[in-house]
């Protein structure tokens, strides 16, 4: 008796993935949170032009996108990691400045690369001109921002104990609440009680990024598995159009590559 039920359940269970997969095309996009506002804006525009296509967008970070692309769970990934990704196809996509921020009440507004490097290398770093210790707020391995910062500003002294936070929004929160703290984030997470520092005398603006003067620029790429299907290819072509990135990106703080 019960075996009969089990068999019915097994048949249903076996058929379920097949039944559910015959639902209309669904493209899954995931990737870097630093570029999520731009992805959402461009995908919304694409949806308006192609009403039949279902697109899921989720953040999750660059590392998440790479891992899930390889698992086959995600179709389009946005990564700002320099890390190579085996068996994935990469296309350059967009750029955005990374800001080094401190709490407004700290009173610091500019810093040079050499000064940052020596602070990060020191075992007891102190803000120049004050006796306030520097508290570093970092991002974990797998963050494109962190990889960029370590390349430009050098590694932290291993005897320091930085705060490591999973998202730029949290970095903003903690740096704003802690005089003496400093961290790196993108423009969409900037708040009024934070000051973005001038680096080597250059203010972080899109114009300075475009002119190649601002040193800290994060580059995102769009990734798919090799030979994506027609719908995915169409979406990627629309996303990577330089004109579209320029138009949608400027008001949000992004530039085409």
């Amino acid at each position: 008796m019960a075996w009969r039920w089990l068999l019915a359940a097994a048949v249903l269970g076996g058929l379920a993935p097949w039944l559910l997969r015959s639902v209309p095309v669904r493209i899954r996009v995931a990737g870097s949170t630093a570029f999520l506002p731009l992805v959402l804006r461009m995908v919304a525009a694409y949806r308006r032009e192609h009403p039949g296509v279902e697109i899921d967008v989720t953040g999750g970070g660059s590392g998440f996108a790479l891992a899930q692309l390889q698992r086959g769970v995600v179709d389009v990934g946005v990564s700002d990691l320099p890390r190579a990704a085996p068996r994935l196809v990469t296309r350059p996509w967009a750029r955005t400045p990374v800001l080094m921020v401190v709490a407004r009440r700290l009173g610091v507004t500019a810093i040079r690369r050499s000064a940052i490097r020596s602070l990060r290398g020191s075992s007891r770093p102190v803000w120049p001109g004050t006796r306030r210790p520097v508290i570093f707020v970092e991002r974990p391995y797998g963050s494109g921002t962190q990889a960029l910062v370590e390349r430009w500003a050098g590694p932290l002294n291993p005897r320091l104990r930085p705060v490591i936070l999973g998202a730029n929004g949290l970095v903003a929160q903690v740096v704003a609440a802690t005089a003496g703290a400093t961290g790196f984030l993108d423009a969409s997470d900037l708040r009024a009680d934070l000051v973005p520092l001038r680096l080597d005398g250059v203010t972080p603006t899109l114009a300075n990024v475009a002119a190649g003067r601002y040193p800290l620029v994060l580059t995102a790429r769009i990734l798919t598995r090799a030979r994506p299907g027609g719908e995915v290819r169409r979406l990627v072509r629309a996303l990577t159009s330089t004109r579209a990135v320029a138009a949608a990106g400027r008001p949000l703080g992004y530039l085409p590559p």
């Binding site: 210790p133 508290i135 707020v137 104990r161 705060v163 936070l165 903690v174 609440a177 802690t178 005089a179 003496g180 703290a181």
Partner: peptide, 14 residues
């Protein structure tokens, strides 16, 4: 966390 952040600023309260 905001309370602990005042007590132990270097760790962000965590």
């Amino acid at each position: 966390l905001p309370v602990l952040r005042v007590v132990a600023p270097a760790g962000g309260g965590y």
